[in-house]
């Protein structure tokens, strides 16, 4: 067998297994999203009032249906009707604006994703170096001090932090960042973008947890036998360690913390009047505009599971053993 043939066969076998593992993850994600829809539906079902009337599927059900016979199958049918509207994009119309819900939500979701992306970058920019340094230099003054400072930062209420940021900017830099962050041409005013991003990045309360997690993982990997072998080989230790010490932990912790960043975004968007899905959710809750908040809930779940799926994909692609195991 010549070189290329052998490699090809091995790669083929491996790729099949990877594709299988990936499809498994995808089906798991779909199953979870399905579960979320059931959960949300249950909440709708038990809420007072008539939450289903705003959907074009129209049928008023609510708690009255409990009395009718054949209750269970009616429930299922109704759920499926509701689900089919959801899937086709019909989330009803907003009680407040009368407009269809989904397009409006999707439009602002982009702004929130923007905000979250950069905020996560800032959080990582602070937490990663500290975590890595603390792992490599055990129990130094820097590590104790930085851990404590991180804890304090993580306990700060983000809403207060936002105000302080605005205050400092207004007082010392004579710059008031609260007016709309969108210039007339439709783009983003980067300077105004800066504030909510930094506030969310610093105030999300996750810095200390990420530091702790990264530190634990880096320290653990550095003690692994294969790192010792790499060193004994005269090879670059980081080149061998970065996958397990950096890529995997960071993707894991970021994916698991996306829900928290979304939650923080609700507050930050409210402070800075950032037209994102968090602000829309707050407004909707105030107005009891449940079609909107319902849609946002499902979109949020979609984002969370999407992030999680992405992390699983990274894991499967990096770890050659992941696709081979039978879980």
């Amino acid at each position: 067998m010549d070189n290329s043939n052998v490699k090809l066969n091995v790669m083929k076998a491996r790729t099949t297994k990877v594709v299988l593992a990936l499809s498994k993850e995808l089906s798991m994600t779909l199953a979870l999203l399905f579960g979320v829809s059931v959960l949300v539906y249950t909440l709708l079902y038990f809420s007072p009032g008539d939450p289903f009337s705003s959907f074009s599927s129209g049928e008023t059900l609510g708690t009255d249906a409990a009395e009718s016979t054949g209750e269970k199958s009616v429930w299922v049918t109704h759920y499926l009707h509701w689900l089919s509207s959801i899937i086709t994009g019909d989330f009803g119309t907003s009680i407040r604006s009368g407009e269809p819900v989904l397009p409006a939500v999707l439009q602002v979701t982009l702004n929130t994703l923007n905000l979250m992306f950069f905020a996560i970058l800032i959080t990582l920019a602070i937490a990663l170096p500290i975590g890595i340094i603390n792992a490599l230099r055990n129990a130094s003054v820097f590590s104790s001090a930085s851990t404590l400072v991180a804890y304090v930062m993580s306990s700060l209420p983000v809403f207060w932090l936002g105000y302080i940021a605005v205050y400092i900017s207004t007082k010392y830099f004579e710059y008031f960042p609260l007016s709309s962050s969108f210039s007339d041409s439709g783009g983003i005013d980067w300077l105004k973008f800066f504030f909510p991003v930094v506030v969310l990045g610093l105030g999300s309360g996750l810095i200390s947890e990420i530091i702790r997690f990264v530190r634990m993982e880096v320290a653990r990997v550095m003690d692994e036998e294969y790192i010792r072998t790499a060193r004994a080989k005269g090879a670059s230790v980081w080149l061998h360690a970065y996958k397990e010490a950096l890529v995997l932990p960071v993707s894991e912790i970021v994916a698991s913390k996306i829900p928290f960043f979304l939650g923080g975004a609700i507050i930050v968007e409210q402070i800075f009047n950032w037209q994102g899905v968090g602000r829309m959710a707050w407004q909707a809750a105030q107005d009891r505009d449940f079609p909107v908040i319902l849609c946002i809930t499902l979109v949020a779940a979609l984002i969370v599971r999407g992030g999680s799926l992405l992390q699983r994909v990274i894991y499967i692609l990096i770890n050659p053993r992941a696709s081979q195991e039978n879980k």
Binding site: S256, I266, A285, I293, A300, R305
Partner: peptide, 12 residues
């Protein structure tokens, strides 16, 4: 874990 806590609370 799939639904952010704040979002779920606002829904409720």
């Amino acid at each position: 874990d799939s639904i952010p806590r704040m979002v779920l609370i606002l829904l409720v």
